[in-house]
């Protein structure tokens, strides 16, 4: 598992896509920190004292909320199905367990995002003189969910081209749907909000940890499917 995670982690740092995404994260972190006071002075925007205190970090959280799925899918949509499509997975399944492959891929991607988000938060903390562990944990839990969903889709769908297309659609549609379901008054569909991570992120308590549980369930399902998959 460690070898696969290490390879996945290193591979993610190679290539132009990841450089762009890391740059976007860093630029967002920098400017959200730099212009946080500008938002606070804008009378048309109302913030709670807590929100005002953490305003410099909201830029990052909002970025991950809106584009996180798109970023994660863009980079890792083919993490599993590329291997099965090109049959390099044969080298993996003949050497290690299928669960190790799924977990190795998951942790490799997770570690990449952990490093990127940590750097972005550290950069922000230079301006704010503070590292908000709560928002950092919320951001990482959301990313964990998005990574698990990406792995699940990559196992479910065997063609990398399809997951790429689906990644773009899902990356755009998921946050829109998530916010709509969060605020809709329609009783027939509003229960779905409990299945999305957005609901738990809007609460300022530890319920966001349920997002990790949802991610865990998706990884278990991905593993069960992959156990029966031909490589």
């Amino acid at each position: 598992m460690g070898v696969i995670a290490q390879r996945e982690f290193i591979n993610l740092f190679k290539g132009i896509k990841s450089i762009i995404i890391v740059a976007i994260l860093l630029v967002t972190a920098y400017y959200s920190a730099k212009f946080s006071n500008f938002f606070l002075l804008d009378a048309s925007m109302e913030f709670t004292p807590k929100e005002a205190e953490d305003i410099h970090l909201f830029g990052l959280l909002v970025l991950i909320l809106l584009f996180g799925q798109l970023f994660v899918m863009g980079l890792s949509h083919d993490s599993i199905n590329r291997e099965t499509h090109e049959r390099t997975s044969r080298f993996l399944v003949t050497r290690t367990s299928r669960a190790s492959i799924i977990l190795g891929k998951f942790f490799g991607i997770w570690l990449f995002w952990f490093v990127c988000v940590t750097i972005a938060f550290l950069l922000t903390s230079i301006f704010s003189k503070k590292f908000d562990v709560f928002i950092f944990s919320q951001t990482m839990s959301l990313l964990t969910f998005q990574i698990a969903l990406t792995i699940l889709l990559s196992v479910l769908i065997s063609r990398p081209g399809v997951t790429m297309f689906l990644g773009v659609i899902l990356g755009i549609a998921a946050p829109i749907f998530g916010f709509w379901i969060e605020f809709t008054q329609n009783a027939w569909v509003s229960w779905i909000k409990f299945l999305t991570p957005y609901y738990y992120l809007s609460r300022e308590d530890a319920t966001f940890l349920l997002i990790l549980l949802m991610a865990g369930i998706m990884i278990v399902i991905a593993n069960l499917i992959f156990q029966r998959r031909e490589c």
Partner: peptide
């Protein structure tokens, strides 16, 4: 998984990295 470490496999068809 333990026995997998003791076997070597050259599949009929596979693309290398």
């Amino acid at each position: 998984d333990q026995v997998k470490k003791r076997i070597g496999v050259m599949p009929d068809y596979s693309t290398l990295y």
